[in-house]
Design a protein around this nucleic acid. Structure first.
Lengths: 338, 338
DNA sequence: CGCAAAATTGAAAACGTTTACAGTCAACCA
DNA sequence: TGGTTGACTGTAAACGTTTTCAATTTTGCG
């Protein structure tokens, strides 16, 4: 039996296609009698409305595209999971856009949004459709956007963020309170807003404590495990080693820890390590990793919420949501050695 | 300026819509002159073909849906990343289906496939559209499917797998070779094929070594970190403790290790630990985790390849691809204590 | 040069819905 | 009773492409 269309169901149940459509989308406005007839035909025929027709007519895809630099990353994965779950409740599907940091892929996803493949965009990456110079004019052509994690410096787009500056400052202050004076920073990828913000928090905390910044103690990383390894190796070569290392991501902290332990350093007795994110592995490290907790699920939920507001046309205005971070003191940080 | 359609472009460039469509989809069949005219209009007008129209006409969505139990899991994340990347090259987009183990969500994704929202399905979860009893008849109505990770016991669907039985056997044999006799197993979620297979490998290895199975040493987990913790706690309460623990996932192994270290056990001197998967954190644990490596990227690539074959109509027949696992001996396993 | 074949184009018909609009019919009210 | 309302339903027009088929032009070749 060929696949049934709405006309077939209409014919079977003796009503018009319009009524079938109404029965399915808006049951309340058809009479009970009709509804029953139609539903019977629908079920017996195993009819599932084709989305192609509906999409074309309504000009909506029912999809939301999530653009991320790396879905393998625990932070991103955690967020997207919450997003997917909430989106589904609202009747939307999630299209995955993993840029792998490639500009060409960012273009690709921008196109997808433009061709109507998605009704809205969740943007977790910095570059992207936005060539900052010509961003604003383009912006209005694009579907609704919510930006998170990496703050895009454009007015008028909704954002969900944590206060990276304060988060980093809190981290460093924790180390300072333990008596550390030589505190290294392992940064994220060059020029991303999150890294710049966390760096600022680091600098602010040190400045407030009247400790001079030592450029040698600031290492560039990329948030990944391996860059944590590289950074730590570099730091260990220093004549004057840091007594504490603040990594801008847990992954890098985990990488750093493994280098230390391999080389016989004790954590935190010899060197304290801090991370940022509080991924689920953090508390299971030995020693458990002190870090700044990011509320991944809340971030995901907030993103969807803001986007849905725009999609439903409820809110024209951009909103900014700031979620709280939390210092998680565990065993990887301790008093500075004498 | 309102959004341009194919008719507008046709009008501007003085050709028919048909020719515009041809220029974009199939440049070779239009004359160079026409092509130039059309391209000019397309670029100046900033025209992006609407996918709605095309989808309806071609009855293809250009989407592939990936159904997974948990995208937060490193194994799944790694696989899906490869999938996304390959799919994009072939012009497909990835719809994310995270079931979170919920039956209702599995239904939902089955529907999506049926309503034409996706042209193909990549299935990494066990239950699903397939109520085994009535699975076969339904199967032919569904779009092309490739099954991976959790083997669905149905003939005629393409699969990408590793040999879980052999993998587990290899793991246990490694432990046996180190002199261990009391080897515990921490299983994955009840009744999933992968768990059952690995269990079989475990049992086979022990049987071959003429070691009797001790039910007390077989603990049920769910592949997650916490269940590794729980399992290890349970094992530590045993009167006769195991000297080695084979966890069916790295996550559980990591959980188990943290329990041991917290309680002052030395790994591997007191107890050896093995995992399965070789997630990227495995080698950074202290001690580095001995485990069975799964080729995530290759799995992802193979899945897409098989699916594309079906989508392109190249191959009607189901194919089965088996990818090699690899034993990674690291520091978490050592000779059995005396 | 003339004809067949090939290359290129256009006209028009789908594809499967949703929804504005108009129509029908029963119920209700004055 | 007649008119008005309200509830429900049907008609038909989109939505924006792709593709078949036929028409036209160009090319190739004897």
């Amino acid at each position: 039996m060929a696949k049934l269309g709405i006309k077939d169901i209409a014919a079977i149940s003796g009503v018009s296609p319009a009524t079938v459509s109404r029965t399915l989308r808006n049951p309340d406005i058809v009479s009970e009698e009709t509804r029953k007839k139609v539903m019977k035909a629908v079920e017996e025929g195993g009819y599932t409305p084709s989305r192609f027709g509906a999409n074309l007519r309504t000009q909506k895809s029912g999809n939301i595209i999530v653009v991320m630099p790396d879905i393998t990353n625990q932070v991103n994965a955690g967020i997207i999971r919450a997003i997917e779950s909430e989106a589904q409740k609202a009747g939307y599907s999630i299209l995955l856009g993993d840029t792998q940091g490639l500009a060409e892929r960012e273009k690709h996803y921008a196109n997808m949004a433009q061709s109507g493949q998605a009704d809205g965009v969740l943007l977790f990456t910095f570059h992207m459709p936005f060539n900052l110079n010509k961003a604003l004019p383009v912006l209005k052509q694009l579907p609704p956007i919510v930006n998170s994690c990496e703050s895009i410096p454009i007015e008028g787009i909704s954002k969900v963020m944590i206060d990276n500056i304060a988060g980093a400052r809190t981290a460093v202050e924790h180390l300072l309170s333990l008596g550390h004076k030589r505190i290294a920073a392992v940064m994220g990828p060059r020029d991303t807003p999150s890294t710049l913000e966390r760096l600022k928090g680091y600098e602010t905390a040190l400045a407030t404590a009247r400790i001079e910044i030592d450029e040698q103690l600031i290492i560039r990383g990329d948030y990944g495990l391996d860059s944590g390894i590289g950074a730590m190796e570099q730091l260990l070569k220093l004549r004057l080693r840091p007594t504490a290392v603040f990594c801008f991501s847990d992954d890098m902290a985990i990488g750093a820890m493994s280098v230390l332990q391999e080389n016989g350093f004790r954590i935190p007795q010899d060197i304290s390590i801090m991370g940022f994110d509080d991924i689920r592995y953090a508390r299971l490290m030995t020693p458990a990793l002190t870090t700044i907790h990011q509320p991944l699920e809340e971030i995901g939920k907030a993103c969807i919420e803001l986007l849905l507001e725009q999609l439903d046309g409820k809110s024209e205005q951009a909103r900014y949501v700031e979620l709280p971070f939390q210092l998680m003191v565990r065993q990887s940080t301790g008093p500075a050695p004498l």
